[in-house]
Design a binder for these strands. Structure first.
Ligand SMILES: [Mn+2]
Ligand SMILES: [Mn+2]
Ligand SMILES: [Zn+2]
Ligand SMILES: [Zn+2]
Lengths: 154, 154
DNA sequence: TAATTGTTGCAACTCTGTTGCATTATTGAT
DNA sequence: ATCAATAATGCAACAGAGTTGCAACAATTA
């Protein structure tokens, strides 16, 4: 509890972000979570302690993403989830249950390893595996390069 | 053109689905597409020929998914995309440009292979790689099993 | 033809996520 | 500690994706 709180304070300090109660609360939620959280999850978790507007949560998570503190996970349900991003918690696959909707973290294996692992466990039933890579496509990458060059010339 | 239309007819026939103009139109769109399409994409594409309600498109795509004809791809933008699913077009990674939003298909490689391929091409800039696996978690799998057993006993 | 069944279109709705703006809190200097 | 400058929050209103109920319509079958 208190340890997570201190961790939250340190993380904000380290990123040069102001330590508002809202940011500390959201960060503490992410640190305490065992699965990725949706904005709704965070909102409900924090509702007991303080009433933080969901817009604020969105803005805080967006900020955390920009600073590499948190990472966003898309789900086909339309809701996005967030989890802590760090060297100790590298990018990894997630398992999304079609029935209860739970999103859980998996070991950071490769695609084929994950598939093998999952099929070897009788308990799971895999419908679909998806790899999504995001970044800049060739066109946009070049456009950005050109812009930078032009800015230098001006 | 006509070839895609015939392919659409055959696919519906093969799945035992009635060949309505709306289903043929949506299926033809998917067959002609070079990238996964959103409901909005399909709606706009078909707007010239016929006015199909977006609810109908949702229902048709949901049906296609159930019959393994189409596959859904989640994107962090909140919009989901659809593409043909078949043995010739197996599950594969997708690249989502953060700038122009385009979603393009990648070769069906493993996670690590995709990462290597992408980093070896100067043009691309990768922000984030994500693997999402969906299906039934251990709890729901067991619950389903129990239900089936109980149904047999009744 | 008439009854049955399945499909579509429309309206209304829920939910996620975003934006503009006024209010309030944090920070850093005095 | 006080104050001004700046940053963050809350509120309201909004846009867009996706869903549901229901009536109208189309296809099938008797
Ligand atoms: Mn995770
Ligand atoms: Mn694809
Ligand atoms: Zn489950
Ligand atoms: Zn692009």
């Amino acid at each position: 509890m208190n340890k997570k709180y201190k961790n939250a304070l340190f993380t904000l300090q380290n990123a040069g972000l102001s330590k508002t109660p809202q940011r500390i609360a959201v960060l503490t939620s992410l640190l305490e979570a065992t699965t990725p959280l949706s904005v709704r999850d965070i909102s409900q978790t924090l509702a007991a302690k303080a009433r933080i507007d969901r817009v604020t949560i969105y803005r805080i998570l967006s900020l955390f993403k920009q600073h590499g503190i948190a990472r966003e996970i898309a789900s086909s349900g339309g809701t996005n989830y967030f989890e802590m991003a760090s060297l100790e918690n590298p990018v990894h696959p997630h398992f999304n249950c079609r029935n209860c909707g739970e999103l859980s973290c998996m070991e950071p294996l490769t695609f084929s390893q994950s598939r093998q692992l999952i099929s070897s466990q009788e308990d799971y039933s895999v419908d679909h595996i998806e790899i999504n890579i995001s970044g800049l496509c060739a066109v946009c990458r070049n456009a950005t390069k050109l812009q930078k060059q032009q800015n230098k010339q001006v």
